[in-house]
């Protein structure tokens, strides 16, 4: 048995890949649910109901999907250029912290729209700076950015802990380590009444469209794809590799930082060390499930968010540990990688 590269991949196969991958992941996870003694089909029915079964469930799922769209886009634009940004988690916290630090007061008396825009920009800038460092280390010293961004996540999280227990600590939080809340007028407006769903979702979707257009229709998009596909060939074609990779880092880090900013301005209002239940890492899964396509990221983010929100409710009623959601999401990353392989290769005996 051997593998042979397909001359061309039919678009149908590309569309089927994520569906097959998710189906296989759900099947394996079903075995794990059975291990806990719970009825598998009922568990899945409850996950679906918990994620989409009511108005509240749908808005909660979409609220959860919002930061995932942004971290998913962050991973997608970086991976496309073979910049292995695994630091979205840290960049998200950096963005959140910047917003919390600058948004605690409104000394300039900015109108809400300008204040929100300024804060989101500062969050994006914080994430940007955090990713530019490892990419410069790679370009300058040849240090693999995977390890530096991963280690960076731990450093940033400790810094957040330092901030919320120290200089940013809210004195009115009864001793809980959380930051001073951002001013009320900086809160993102709700887009559905009686829910937590906020304007961030629309911003994230708009950015997905924008990133798609940048990738498709700009010189930068072409250069970043070329740098990812074949750096040597790209260099011969006159693509400035260092500049391109740093621009990619700015875009990717900025999107991840924005995820943190949006989560603070839209949902929490303040920063704690458990602001993100692994949004940065899940963003990698989202990007891969989407086949690195910015528009697909939106759908993949909704799937991953639905797993988490649905499993929460299911675990309470059926006594299956809610970690099943993390397991399923991780499984779907691996099955998606395999599915992507078979869209490019066929088996020959």
């Amino acid at each position: 048995m051997r593998f042979e590269r397909r001359a061309r991949t039919s678009p149908l196969l590309g569309l089927a890949a994520p569906l097959v991958a998710v189906a296989v992941a759900l099947t394996i996870a079903g075995g794990l649910i059975a291990l806990s003694g719970a009825p598998v089909l009922e568990a899945y029915a409850r996950i679906a109901a918990g994620a989409f079964g009511s108005r509240l469930a749908i808005t909660e799922t979409l609220t959860r999907a919002t930061p995932l769209i942004l971290t998913g886009l962050a991973a997608a634009v970086a991976f496309r250029a073979q910049v292995w940004n695994i630091g979205a988690e840290g960049q998200l916290y950096a963005g959140a912290l910047a917003v919390a630090a600058l948004g605690a007061a409104n000394p300039l008396g900015l109108p809400p729209a300008a204040l929100i825009a300024a804060l989101m920009l500062s969050g994006a800038l914080a994430g940007m700076m955090l990713l530019v460092i490892p990419v410069v280390l790679r370009l300058r010293f040849g240090v693999d950015e995977v390890v530096t961004t991963l280690l960076g996540n731990f450093i940033v999280l400790l810094f957040v802990s330092l901030a919320v227990e120290g200089f940013l600590k809210d004195p009115l939080a009864f001793g809980w380590p959380q930051s001073v809340p951002v001013v009320e007028e900086a809160a993102l407006p709700r887009i559905v009444e009686r829910s937590r769903l906020h304007l961030g979702l629309a911003i994230a979707c708009a950015l997905a469209g924008l990133v798609f257009l940048i990738g498709r229709h700009t010189v930068f998009g072409m250069q970043s794809r070329a740098a990812g596909l074949n750096p040597a060939a790209a260099r011969f074609a006159g693509v400035p590799i260092p500049g391109t990779l740093i621009r990619v880092a700015c875009l990717s880090g900025g999107l991840a930082g924005l995820a943190g900013a949006v989560e603070v301005l839209g949902v929490k209002g303040y920063v704690t060390t458990d602001l993100s239940p692994g949004f940065g890492y899940s963003g990698i899964v989202v990007a891969m499930l989407a086949g690195l396509n910015p528009l697909g990221v939106v759908l993949a983010a909704v799937f991953v968010a639905a797993m988490f929100v649905g499993a929460d409710g299911m675990s309470r009623t059926l006594d299956v540990p809610s970690f099943i959601a993390d397991v399923t999401v991780a499984l779907s990353l691996l099955t998606m990688l395999v599915a992507l392989f078979f869209t490019a290769y066929r088996v020959r005996r």
Binding site: F3, L32, L35, S36, F79, W84, I86, V146, Y281, I284, V285, M288, P321, F323, I324, D326, V327, V329, A330, L331, L333, L334, L337, V338, F341
Partner: peptide, 30 residues
């Protein structure tokens, strides 16, 4: 995944990390 299929070692490794750690929490809870 990485030798037979030749998939990206970065992404596969991260997938293994996500899977193995979440699976260990799940089994521990069970």
């Amino acid at each position: 995944l990485t030798v037979t299929l030749g998939l990206s070692q970065h992404v596969t490794g991260l997938g293994i990390t996500l899977l193995a750690s979440s699976l260990s929490y799940y089994i521990f809870r069970l």
